Computed example of a mutant assay.
Amino acid sequence: MFIVLLRFAENRAAAGEHLAGHRQWIEQGLRDQVFLLAGGIQPGLGGAVLVHNLSLSQVRRRVAADPFVIHRVVDAEILEIAPGMADPRLEFLLPAPAGS
């Protein structure tokens, strides 16, 4: 599981120009069922995406395809999380027990 932080960068002023493509990128990740959640980092610092069921190399490729990343509207930081415990509603995020 990964948290992708998309912090505004040097070309932040071009966000409006690339917003439609960025939204399509997020919507595609949701349709592909690899993005679980996307939203803003407050107060207005950028955004974040919770990613599931991809390898690190797959996440890197997907992030590199975000128009905001391509046009340096944001800088992306990928944080990998190894889930160990979860609220029962989120147990689907935990790795399968050994031997299953």
Rank of each mutant, 00 (worst) to 15 (best):
I70E: 11
D32T: 02
E27Y: 03
P67R: 04
R12V: 14
E27V: 05
Q33A: 13
V49R: 00
L6Y: 07
P97F: 03
G40Y: 01
V4H: 05
A86Q: 04
S55L: 12
I26T: 01
A14T: 10
V59T: 12
I70A: 10
L93W: 04
P97M: 04
V51I: 15
R62S: 01
N53R: 15
A64D: 13
M1A: 05
I26N: 00
F92L: 10
L37F: 14
V63N: 08
L37M: 15
P88W: 08
N53I: 02
L90N: 15
V49I: 15
L90A: 15
L94A: 05
G47Q: 06
I70F: 07
S100A: 12
N11T: 03
G29V: 07
G39P: 08
N11P: 01
D66A: 01
F68N: 13
A14G: 02
N11K: 11
D66Q: 02
D66K: 01
L54V: 13
E17Q: 15
Q33N: 14
G29S: 08
A65H: 06
R72Q: 11
L30C: 02
H22V: 07
L79Y: 01
V73T: 13
N11M: 05
R72H: 12
R61V: 03
Q28G: 06
H52I: 00
L79D: 00
A64I: 06
F2Q: 00
A14C: 08
R12K: 15
A96N: 09
F8A: 00
L36F: 02
D87Q: 14
W25S: 01
L5G: 08
V59H: 07
H71F: 03
E27P: 00
L93Q: 06
E77W: 03
R7C: 03
R72G: 03
A20R: 10
L94F: 02
A98D: 12
Q24Y: 01
L5V: 09
I78G: 14
V74P: 11
V4Y: 03
L93M: 13
V63T: 11
Q24G: 11
